[in-house]
């Protein structure tokens, strides 16, 4: 019995963690390459969720297909934000860049509140895929599929960074902006693409999350803070780190919720984050005082 419970909680955590990984991968990419903490990230996730919701209600498009749609929408939004606004302060001190993305988020999130209101929306699929049962462990297939899709997307991002032309340019700019510029890379464009890719990951994750969690502009901070925690857990600017960090956080939250009650899941992850920052800022992130 205890073993079944243990595995049930573990599986729940892993399913959740896959989705978290997808959220964090984009956030981590932007932080690592642009050295900007994108406070907008949570709101991007929410926009992705709304896109999927309305695509399903009005067009009947399944959220898993809307992942592409949401990704494209958010990529465009992200690209424009970076190209038009954030690029102007990209090398400025932390206080400036952080205040800027904060300001942008206040604006964007408040706009969502005005348009969609704070009321929670729930997307109920007309034909849910049912529940998978294995050795006494239950997993809703929709969730499982969302997780697999999320992990697939995260791997795709990894592949893009490793193998594609644009990905190599991003990596080059990250390592040495001056040198990359000399070799003909348009750094401003690359920054914007990077930010766009980060937003794309957020939007896609949001579309998948719409099947699982209620949708409201209010939950954006929740997603944002998870992205923070995962980045510190898994290491900065690495897709693989986001993947590991996401899965770890999912499992920790899942077990923490079991022990302390689900309403404290968030607090547990925050405490974890602060402890990590205090005791092992170098060990986990590899780089100390990265500014």
């Amino acid at each position: 019995m205890a073993a079944t419970l243990f595995f049930q909680v573990l599986v729940n955590g892993l399913v959740l963690g896959g989705l978290y990984a997808c959220i964090a991968a984009g956030f981590s990419l932007v932080w690592g390459v642009l050295n900007i903490i994108n406070i907008l990230h949570g709101t991007f996730v929410v926009i992705g969720s709304y896109s999927a919701y309305y695509a399903y209600i009005y067009l009947g498009v399944h959220p898993f297909i809307s992942v592409v749609l949401a990704g494209i929408i958010l990529f465009i939004i992200g690209y424009l934000f970076q190209r038009g606004i954030i690029n102007r302060v990209v090398a400025a001190p932390v206080l400036i860049t952080l205040s800027l993305t904060f300001g942008l988020d206040l604006f964007l999130n408040n706009s969502l509140l005005v348009v969609f209101s704070a009321d929670y929306l729930k997307l109920n699929l007309a034909n849910p895929l049912g529940v998978l049962q294995f050795a006494g462990i239950y997993v809703p297939v929709d969730r499982l599929a969302a997780m697999v899709l999320a992990l697939f997307l995260t791997c795709l991002l990894y592949w893009v960074l490793e193998a594609s032309r644009i990905g190599r340019a991003i990596v080059a700019v990250r390592m040495d902006r001056e040198a990359a510029t000399l070799m003909g890379v348009n750094a401003k464009h690359i920054y914007a693409v990077t930010f766009g890719l980060g937003a794309l990951m957020a939007g896609s994750a949001g579309a998948m999350l719409s099947v699982i969690f209620p949708i409201s502009p209010i939950v954006s901070t929740l997603y944002l803070s998870k992205a923070f925690v995962i980045c510190v857990l898994g290491g900065l600017g690495s897709v693989a780190g986001a993947m590991v960090g996401g899965l770890v956080l999912g499992v920790v939250e899942s077990f923490g919720g079991l022990i302390f009650g689900p309403e404290h899941a968030m607090t547990i992850s925050f405490c974890l984050l602060i402890l990590l920052l205090i005791f092992r800022p170098t060990g986990i992130m590899g780089k100390k005082g990265y500014e």
């Binding site: 952080l98 968030m266 925050f270 920052l277 205090i278 500014e291």
Partner: peptide, 25 residues
């Protein structure tokens, strides 16, 4: 004493999240 050894973004985040934890407590 606990978090001022952090620099830049890490300090900003640590200081930011403390309020969330206190609120929950």
């Amino acid at each position: 004493l606990a978090i001022l050894h952090l620099k830049g973004h890490y300090f900003a985040i640590a200081s930011l999240i403390v309020a969330e934890v206190l609120r929950e407590v």
